[in-house]
Design a protein around this nucleic acid. Sequence first.
DNA 1: AAATCGGATGTTATATTATAACTCCCGTTA
DNA 2: TAACGGGAGTTATAATATAACATCCGATTT
Lengths: 170, 170
Amino acid sequence: MNTPIETSPPPPPRSEHDHQKCVSEAIGTAEHLCVVRGVQLTPIRHQVLELIWESHKAVKAYELLDRLKPLQSAAKPATIYRALDFLIEQGLIHRVESLNAFVGCSSSGHQHEQLLLICKHCNEVEERPATEVMQALSQELDQAGFIVHSKAIEIHGICIKCVALCNEQD
Amino acid sequence: MNTPIETSPPPPPRSEHDHQKCVSEAIGTAEHLCVVRGVQLTPIRHQVLELIWESHKAVKAYELLDRLKPLQSAAKPATIYRALDFLIEQGLIHRVESLNAFVGCSSSGHQHEQLLLICKHCNEVEERPATEVMQALSQELDQAGFIVHSKAIEIHGICIKCVALCNEQD
DNA sequence: AAATCGGATGTTATATTATAACTCCCGTTA
DNA sequence: TAACGGGAGTTATAATATAACATCCGATTT
């Protein structure tokens, strides 16, 4: 019982998941949402979103700038920050406040406010809807009489993939 | 039945609470903890802590620097950042990640990780232990197999005191 | 076609936040 | 006294972010 050679896709390089799928879903959703909302996912914004989605790691603005320059030779800090502002407004990326960095949002259409689990080892950021946490949080905020505009819930530590690999302390 | 003049303290300026009590408790706790832990709450560190405790607002590092200079003419950015690093390490202040700012911690002795409710109107920061939220969060993180090092839970909005005052949008 | 308008981008400059690296001082200890 | 270690002084610079104004370009109106 051999695996059929002709249909098996090449495995993703160093990771266990099909990252192309992550990217195409995210970009596809973004394109769709922007059409629906009547806003422009311009070439620059599209490129920045793609650069962010090259990995699940949080990326710095100036790192994005360096990576954008080969594609947009006129790119300056304002170029990046404007694109980031747009992508955040549209809920297509998260700003990771505790890192001054940015990461793609997997649930752009749905609720945007999630737990972010930030791994110090691999630097990847995992989003979790964490409905029970959010529910308890809503209750707490109601009790406090606090009118919420936005939430940043950022947990730093070691992700499950890295826990296995790293037994030295961080 | 007149109030006894000789014992009534002057009311705190624009606020409903006895802020001197906040300050003296915080400073007292800090002094005590530093002795217990065998670390030095040096004059500079003490002054920075006092400056932070002048209000419940989140304060910027360079704003603290400006306010420290009259007391420590040699103060430079490093002076402030070293003091802030120390105070954070000792759990005496919070760094508000989403503002790049700092605020006193009211529960220095106890658990340090709390909800921070950050009012956009008055800029004050309220800490809340929010045990139910924290419990749900612990469960969520256990389920995710994530080893926690630190948490930042920051909610932006309008606090209950300001909701009454401000009906224009923010 | 010309005028105009708004959104996006180009461009220059600068503000804000934070750290590196090296020195000095001072009190403790070997 | 010498060595050490923590705290602070000092200089320089890195990293992050925004302001302000000019230009371009496509859509709409005149």
